[in-house]
């Protein structure tokens, strides 16, 4: 959404010497901290409220989640390589790394779809217990963020093919990148707080 604006960034220097769009996206990410914070807090409150349904230890598949976490982590690398490419003027490199990032993102989402179906089979749904509700809402909203990120990556890819992401406009890539990395760091927290620690607890 924020890929292109009429901020006249090229025309007028700004008061702080930074780009409007970058400032706005950081403000937005600060806001997102409060959003995911509430979801994680809800999960922490409810991860022991099982309502006689399965709990974290019963359903979590740590090896599987470790692999998908790794995939998302590496998508941050490809994202940042896309930025490095366009900053060097390599538009083809940009497109390759954008596609790679989108592909890794889609792999992660497929993993999540698989994980959710497995949990359904084992009897954990949104309705089962507060644990189920909190788990699916937190990871679901994270997945929705990744999906929006993939759409943004593909739009950026398309814009680049239309020649609308010249090296002088590498900021577009940086903005999508900031969002993408943010989604990644949220998952870093989720992997530890939602998966590893509750699953290890006796």
């Amino acid at each position: 959404m924020a890929v292109e604006t009429e901020a006249h960034a090229e025309e007028h220097a700004t008061s702080l010497g930074i780009d409007n769009r970058k400032l706005a996206i950081w403000a937005f990410l600060g806001s997102e901290c409060m959003f995911f914070g509430a979801l994680i807090a809800t999960y922490l409150l409810f991860h022991t409220h099982l309502n006689n349904g399965p709990g974290p230890r019963d359903v979590y598949n740590i090896p599987f989640t470790s692999v998908s976490s790794f995939v998302l982590l590496m998508s941050s690398l490809t994202m940042v390589l896309a930025l490095a490419a366009i900053q060097k003027g390599d538009e083809r490199g940009l497109r390759v790394w954008l596609l790679a990032t989108a592909f890794l993102g889609m792999t992660f989402i497929s993993g999540q779809v698989y994980e959710f179906t497995e949990f359904f089979k084992e009897g954990l749904t949104l309705k089962t217990s507060p644990f189920g509700s909190a788990f699916f809402m937190l990871t679901g909203f994270h997945g929705a963020h990744v999906t929006i990120g993939i759409l943004m990556l593909l739009s950026l890819f398309q814009l680049s093919r239309m020649g609308k992401v010249p090296p002088s406009d590498s900021l577009k890539v940086e903005l999508v990148g900031l969002y993408w990395h943010f989604v990644d760091v949220v998952w870093i927290v989720i992997f530890t707080v939602v998966y590893l620690i509750p699953a290890a607890k006796k």
Binding site: T42, F46, H49, L50, N51, L126, K127, T128, P130, S133
Partner: peptide, 18 residues
């Protein structure tokens, strides 16, 4: 919304909601 539309249990005290 989820409680109302899809019967999640965040606020369903019987199921352990709070």
């Amino acid at each position: 919304t989820f409680d109302r539309l899809w019967h999640s249990t965040f606020y369903n005290a019987v199921a352990g909601g709070d």
